[in-house]
Every structure is written in C-alpha cells, then in structure tokens.
Nucleic acid binder design. Sequence first.
DNA 1: CTACACATAGTGTAAAAACATATATTTGTA
DNA 2: TACAAATATATGTTTTTACACTATGTGTAG
Lengths: 150, 150
Amino acid sequence: MGSIGEEIKQKEFKNEYSKLMINVLYTASWLNTLQNSIFKEHKLTPQQYNSLRILRGQHPDAASVNLLKDRMIDKMSNVSRIIDKLKAKDLVTRKPCKHDRRQVDVKITDKGLELLEAIDLQMVDWEKNLHTISPKEAEAASALLDKWRS
Amino acid sequence: MGSIGEEIKQKEFKNEYSKLMINVLYTASWLNTLQNSIFKEHKLTPQQYNSLRILRGQHPDAASVNLLKDRMIDKMSNVSRIIDKLKAKDLVTRKPCKHDRRQVDVKITDKGLELLEAIDLQMVDWEKNLHTISPKEAEAASALLDKWRS
DNA sequence: CTACACATAGTGTAAAAACATATATTTGTA
DNA sequence: TACAAATATATGTTTTTACACTATGTGTAG
C-alpha cells in the first residue's frame, strides 16, 4: 500500500503525466468502490446519487434533463433512464415543463431529500478516512487537477 | 472550463476533501472519455487495454487471472470475460497452467503487442494535451493522491 | 489417507452503460 | 407561412458490469 507504482506493481512510468493519469483513474476507482458500499445499502448507483445531489442543489426549483446532464460527473450518462429509476422509487417527480414542452421539470421529493440526509450522515463518518492529507494539501491537489484539465 | 466548481456549477463544497473527491471522479471521467476516443478506433475498452498493458509488462512470461485482477486499475473487473474478448480477437492466448491446474497462463500474442504499439504512437500525440502542468507539478499531484489513499 | 477449508477461475443473471437513432417541440429564416 | 435546423428528451439494442454462485484443484490438520 502506498504509491501507485507499488499498488499496481509497475516499476516505471513513461513520464509523470502518464503516471498521474493512472493515479487519477486508480484513485477514482478506489473512491467509487468505497462509496458504493454506502450507496448499496440504499440501493442507489453513484449516478443516481449524483443526480439526486444536483436536484437538491436546485430545490425547490426544478431541473431539466439537460441541466442534470451538464452537471453530472460522468457526461456520458443516460439521464432519462436514471430519472426513470429515481421516479420508480418516488425520489423525484417528472412533469412536462410549461414554458417549453420539449423539456421536463424534474424535482426531488421529500422522500428524496430524506434519503440524501441519511446518506450524508453516513458520509460524514466515512470521510474521516480521507483525512490522511491536510485540507491545504487537498486544496493543492484540487488546484493541480483543475489546471491539468484546462 | 476551469475549476471543478465552475465545471459542475457547484458554488460551495462541504470541505476540501469532498471537493477533491468530486474533482478526482470528474477528472477520471474526463480522462476516460478522451482515451475512449482512441480505444474505440481499435475496438478496445479501457479495461481490455489495461489488461493488455499488464500482459505486455509480463511478456514473455504468462500471467494468471489473479495477477491481472490484482494489478488492474479497476479491482472489480471480471477478468475472465475480459480475457474471453481479447482471445476472440487473437490478442492473447489462454492455456492451463502446468504447475497449478486451477490457474491459467494468459499471454499476449504478437498481434496484441503490435496493437499496443500502434496505440502507443497515438497516445504520445494525445498526451501532449496534458502538458498544462509541469512534470514537477504532476509528480506533486501524484504524491498527494498516494498519500490520500494511504 | 481423508476430510475439509481455501484458492482459482468461470458462469448465470439482472442491472446498467454505451451508443446510435427516433420523436417531439421550438427557433430562425427565406 | 412553410420549412430546415437546432434543441430536448426518450427509446432500442448491444455490450459491459456487479454480484452471487458453481466447479475444480490444492494444501493441510487430524
């Protein structure tokens, strides 16, 4: 456990960019696995959770499918079907938009808000595992990734 | 374009850890989308590519399914089926292991090596897009992620 | 030697993702 | 107005993932 090189038993990387790339992909997979253990209890996928979070951010306003798509972590997601699943669980509502009948108004329900709150509580505990670096270091890492993507 | 907050239109994060978490997941998705455009031409998935890379690292030795699983970026992968796909394309061979009949010896073929080499050439060009930070900064980011996971 | 726990790989199945395409509505414009 | 292009969402289909389960081989304690 430790450096990405040790984790995947790769002694050398072509360059620092290639190493960072693998490190980011590996770390994302690691985070997903950890988070999934929480989501699974509530029968949510990461993307369903992501959608609910965005809808909470809009609450009490509605969001269109497109707005959700734009803000999703994974841009390739099929939002329509994610909403289907959430609606089947009464976590969101979907109504035609009055001003533009192509759009739909998606809103999070009280049940959805309650679920997110329950998950938040678990997350708080879980996130303590991530305090192996200081807040300043985390901020620095975020800034580097931002710059990398630009 | 720019900071993760602007990208997903989220003004505030609970804390720096939560922000870094979303940033890593977002950056990984960004990398996957970019890489996929290369892999798709060769009809490979990221995981198939990852497996081939590991097999090339072992070449000319064989790898067991377990060894592959351990070194994969995504630990949840179903390696048996990934190997199935690669074998169907003659990119790997799969033979029973002599010393332990539970195991199988998976090896990359010449065709597999050639494919990787072709992809490598494309990657070199593509990776130039990632030079928005210096090698030292990339190294620093890697080190922070390593520390974060520990 | 036998029985049993463990290791290793593969399979069945339901759910989800990927990707192309279709349908409906609005907008711009000739 | 009429009509092409753009926009917003939904659907069809194939592939991939997740996860539980199975089958087989190995090693070891008694």
